[in-house]
Design a protein around this nucleic acid. Structure first.
Lengths: 238, 238
DNA sequence: GAGTGGTCTAGACCACAGT
DNA sequence: CTGTGGTCTAGACCACTCG
C-alpha cells in the first residue's frame, strides 16, 4: 500500500464491514489510532474524513467517531459506477446489446453538451442493457475521438470504462449528472422492453478526466419501474 | 470569519463567481496563496479541496488548479436543500399547503425506516407544494417527537428545517436519499395536480443530526414532468 | 478536569509536468 | 532543471462533551 492514509482507511472499512466494529460504537480515538498505526494525527484524520465522506462514520466533536449503519444503503451508487460493475454487484444475469457504433461529426445538440470544436469527431455508441431477460436500460454515449482513437463492438459489449481506464490509461475523475423524467421516444420503443410505460427516467452525465477535460457525454434511459438511485449527501458548510 | 480555510474558500468562490477568474484558467499556486492569505500551506490546501469537492476547480498534479465551468450546473442540488431555499433560488412564486399535522405512534413501515422504539411518538406532516399555481410536490415527513417536542401549522407552512436548525439548534448533518418511480396513490391524486400522469418520482430521505442520530424520514413525491435532480460525484479512490 | 475532535503551523520529502 | 500539487510529521492551541 502506497498511501498511509489509504491503508488506514481500508483497514477500518474492512473492520466495519466484517462487523468487528458495530453500528453505534465509537471508533478508537484519533490519539489511539495515531499510536496503533504509527502515524501522525493529521494522517489519521485524513483517513477518518474519508470514512465520514463515504458514510461509514459520523464524527462528533468532544465524543468520538460513531460507526453508522452503512449496510442498509451499500448496494448502489451515487457516482460513477458503470453498468458492468453494478451488474456484478447485484449478481444478476445481464447482457449488453450494441445497436450502433459510429464515428461522426458532432450534431448540434450533442456538441453543446460536450463543449467541443465544430469539427470534432465523436464516437456514438448506442447500447441496451438486458437484465433477467428484459431490456431495461438504453445507453447513448458520445466520446471524443481525439482522446479515444479506437473502439470496437466487442469493447462496447464489455465495459467502456474498463477499456478507457485500464487500456488507454485515461484517468476518469468525476461526473456531473442530471436526472429527469421524459416521454418515451421512438428509439426507446425500438430498443427497450417498455411494456406499457409511457415515460423513462433519463440520466445525463458529463464525464471529466483528471486533467479537467470533458471527454464524454452519456444519456442513460431507464424503464421507470426498474430505476433506483441512491445518494449520500453531507451538509455543505456555509 | 472564524475559520481561516473557510475565509479563503469563500474568497475564491466569490472571485470565480464574479468572473475575476475564468473557466480554464489556473488558480495561483498553493505557494502563492500561502503568501497572499498569510497562512500555512495545509490551510490553503483545505480551502482548495473544498473548492474541488464542490465542483469549482479540478486539481492537476504538476500543473495547478484549473477553474471549471461551474455555472452550467449551479442551480440545484445534490444535498439537503429545502423546498423553501430551492424556491427562493429559482425565484418562483410558490406556496405550501399543510394537509395534515398529527402526533402518533409510529406505524409499522415508518418505524422500520426510522429505526426507533416501538412506542416512539412521531410527528406526521403532510404538505403539498405549489409552484406557479400547480400543486407539484407532496411531502410526507415523519419526525421524532422526543427531539422536536412542539410543531405548528404555521411552522410547517414556513420551513421545517429553518425551525429545527435556527430555533431548536439541532444540527442537521447529512442525508441518505433514494430515488424511485412509483405508481400514483389515492393520496397523490387528492393532493396534487397530476394532469394525466400515472406515475410520480419518489425521493425517500433519511436525515441525520450531527451526533449521528437518525431523526427524520421524508417521502417527497414529485410530478414527473417537473422533477429534476442534479448530482456531482467525484470518483472515490480505490 | 480529562478526553475528544477541529484548526493551524513550519517544515520535509515525493511525484509529476513543462522547459 | 524549476514549479506544481500530494503526502506526512510533530507540535500547538481551541471548542466541545461528560463525569
Amino acid at each position: 500500500m502506497k498511501n498511509k492514509f489509504l491503508f488506514i482507511y481500508n483497514d477500518l472499512v474492512r473492520m466495519i464491514q466484517q462487523g468487528k466494529i458495530n453500528p453505534g460504537d465509537t471508533l478508537p480515538s484519533e490519539h489511539e489510532l495515531t499510536n496503533r498505526y504509527e502515524s501522525s494525527r493529521e494522517t489519521v484524520r485524513k483517513a477518518l474524513n474519508l470514512l465520514a465522506q463515504n458514510g461509514y462514520i459520523q464524527k462528533v466533536r468532544g465524543k468520538g467517531s460513531v460507526v453508522l449503519d452503512h449496510g442498509k444503503f451499500e448496494f448502489p451508487v451515487s457516482g460513477l459506477t458503470s453498468f458492468k460493475e453494478l451488474s456484478n454487484q447485484l449478481g444478476q444475469d445481464f447482457q449488453t446489446i450494441v445497436h450502433e457504433l459510429s464515428l461522426e461529426i458532432a450534431e448540434e445538440g450533442v456538441r453543446e453538451h460536450l463543449q467541443c470544436k465544430r469539427d470534432q469527431k465523436l464516437w456514438k455508441v448506442v447500447r441496451s442493457r438486458q437484465i433477467a431477460g428484459e431490456k431495461i436500460i438504453l445507453d447513448k454515449d458520445y466520446i471524443r475521438e481525439d482522446l479515444v482513437p479506437a473502439l470496437s463492438t466487442s469493447i462496447a459489449e464489455e465495459s467502456l470504462y474498463a477499456y478507457i481506464e485500464d487500456e488507454l490509461k485515461l484517468d476518469i475523475s468525476f461526473a456531473k449528472k442530471e436526472i429527469v423524467v421524459e416521454k418515451v421516444t421512438e428509439e426507446d420503443r425500438r430498443y427497450l422492453d417498455l411494456l406499457d410505460h409511457e415515460q423513462v427516467v433519463v440520466i445525463r452525465s458529463y464525464v471529466y478526466l483528471a486533467d479537467a477535460t470533458l471527454f464524454q457525454f452519456t444519456e442513460s434511459r431507464h424503464r421507470p419501474d426498474k430505476f433506483q438511485f441512491v445518494d449520500f449527501a453531507r451538509r455543505t458548510k456555509a
